[in-house]
Amino acid sequence: MTITCGLLPVLEPEEQDHSYEMSDYEGARARWCPGCGDHSILAAVQKLLAAEQLPPERTMFVSGIGCSSRFPHYLKTYGFHGIHGRALPVATGIKLNRPDLDIFVVMGDGDCTSIGAGHWIHALRYNLDIVVMLLDNGIYGLTKNQTSPTTPQGHPSNTQPHGSWLPSLNPLSTALGVTNASFVAQTAEWVPAHLYATLRAARRHKGLSFVRILQRCPVYSSAVYMKAVQDPNRIALLVHDDGVVVPELEKVYKNVVAHDPHDLAAARRVADNMDHVHLGVLFADPSRPRYEDLRRVAPRTAEERLTLLEAELDRYAV
């Protein structure tokens, strides 16, 4: 829409033969705690950027506030480290003005499912073509151990020392309940091959790809995913040609479920099924309307605008 920004790709052409290495995307040295799951997610994202050959200057990472929201600093792309819970409105504005940019949104569970929950619901409905990663460690880490909506019931924290009072919020069933949501997936940072494959499927999906990434916090919530990490039988892989298939993982994870991601009812059953931790694409429908397409309008030159404005003023002429 912005007249002049349409020029940028022409002024800064991608060379046909240029290829980007993983190192081309490296930003500042990551300052997360040793053992934090975010390191693994950062590595998978860098690998994805290189594999998809996304020009760093045309790639944007938008985040809120929280441990995971430091993400953009550790990449050499454009980054917007904004305010708590509000990454999605910012990403919406960027995408509306600049559909040419590849946009990734990185949020923690507090960011996405608590303070920013309203934006989360509506962003799913807008269905802009962006990748939204929820780095879910079930706890507030940056502010040192407070309960989040996804903290398992009974898990103690500084704000709920006798254990979280309420059953935890299920981000997958919440997302699948939103009209016009077009892609919902779950993966885990301790299964890097699956993480990578899921992010790639998300990036290739046309529409808002919501990926919940189970992420360990070694300091405050190490117990949350302990069982799933230690016992591969707790995990069930959802496989489908239109979802994620990583054959080599099927040697480790014996629970393999054929799940058609076009089937919303089945996706909702999987989301609510707590017998296993399901990894894979629960739902994908690329035909759902995307807000930036619905709202895309032909830009007008200054002269055209002047002519139209005179006509508009005529309506008010005395």
Partner: peptide
């Protein structure tokens, strides 16, 4: 094809103006 045409025209105009 108004929109893609207008987008190209806007691009031309932007360059011209600058």
């Amino acid at each position: 094809l108004d929109r893609p045409i207008a987008e190209f025209r806007a691009l031309l105009e932007g360059a011209l103006r600058q």
